[in-house]
Amino acid sequence: MTLSHDVYALPTFAALDSYAVLTGRRRGTSIQLDETYFTGQLWALRNLDTDSDFEHRTERLEDSRRAYDDIHVAIDELTEQALWETSQRFREQLQAIPEISYLTRNVPGRCFVVPEWMRTGNRLHYGARVYLFGDEDPPDPEAVLRENIESIVNESFGTFERYQGQLHGYPDCCIDYYQDRTPDSPSPEWRSVEPFTDRIRDAALGQGPAMSIDDVVSTFLDREDGYAFFAREFFPESGCETAMAKGRSIYEELSSALPESLVRDYFRLNFGTNYLVARAVHSGRDRRPSPGELGREHLLWYAPPREALAVPRYT
């Protein structure tokens, strides 16, 4: 089995996401550039039992993490012009990070980084997101940034959430569902994962390589609605047939090029990630899952596909 698109330079999770895009099953995907992205890859590359030499790659990741941590963004006033000018300077700094050059050089299709803004009350938060698209009809980076800035200034972030969901190829009905939030009901994140909570063994979470995803998430794709979890941090409406159909299509496409055991783990890890995010939201915390929190396969998710495919589980 071989992939028809060369995504082997990416971490496995991003390679599978991108393959679904490049084969036309999704419009696009993205990577949040943050500490989790860097530390996950560094841990995986330094702890793989392999003959491959990753010294240069780990050095570039360390350089990139330092460069990202050294970026400090300040804005004097919350206007569209000020946000745009600050974003342009911020983006120039992001584009100088070695990892961005690495991704741009190694991702088939279209790859770009843009600043990402969020607002809670009067407080402004910033980050960075790398988008990956096929060659046909990719959005313009400035258009993505403009949509984000306008939503911040106009206090209409839901508009940008919808736009962003469409960029990722999520069904419109699930985007509607995700935006249906009321103070007196559980979050859409929790409502999405709740039907599967009996598949999670909470006691096995956070044990790192001592546990397998088998110990954390029991049999998952025996239920048709499990196929709806075709992307991490995508929260499908329970029972959504459109999401299930898209997920089944992605499963079949990936399984035609990769061992089915890897593809099954991909869906379980997507769901496990969503469960951890939903649990954090449900309890009022703001925390993304740490690499390995779902077991050793979760750490392997950050290794290149060739290394993942070399372990006995996937051979």
Rank of each mutant, 00 (worst) to 15 (best):
T50D: 09
R110G: 08
E142V: 04
E155H: 11
T104D: 05
D76E: 09
N106G: 12
A96I: 07
H72P: 05
N122Q: 10
T58V: 01
S64I: 01
F112C: 01
E116V: 09
L103C: 03
A128C: 09
D140N: 09
Q93C: 13
L103W: 13
Q88P: 04
Y68K: 11
R60I: 08
R57P: 06
V73S: 05
L45F: 03
A96W: 04
E85M: 04
A74E: 10
E150T: 15
W43K: 14
Y68Q: 12
P138C: 02
D137N: 12
E150S: 15
L94G: 08
L124D: 14
V144T: 00
G40N: 11
R89A: 12
T58A: 09
N154K: 13
V130Q: 01
L94I: 07
A82S: 15
I100H: 03
L83M: 15
E80K: 08
E80V: 00
S101W: 07
R129D: 07
Y131C: 04
Y102N: 05
D69S: 14
A74V: 03
L42N: 11
T50I: 03
L42R: 15
D70K: 13
T58G: 05
I100R: 01
Q93F: 07
E99K: 10
E55L: 10
N47H: 14
L42H: 10
H125C: 10
Q95M: 10
A74G: 12
Y102A: 13
G127Q: 08
D140W: 00
I152D: 03
Q95E: 14
E77L: 03
L94C: 07
D140T: 08
E155M: 13
A82Y: 02
F133D: 01
P141W: 06
V73Y: 04
V113I: 02
R119S: 11
W84G: 13
E99I: 15
G127N: 07
D49T: 09
V107Q: 13
W117V: 08
E55P: 09
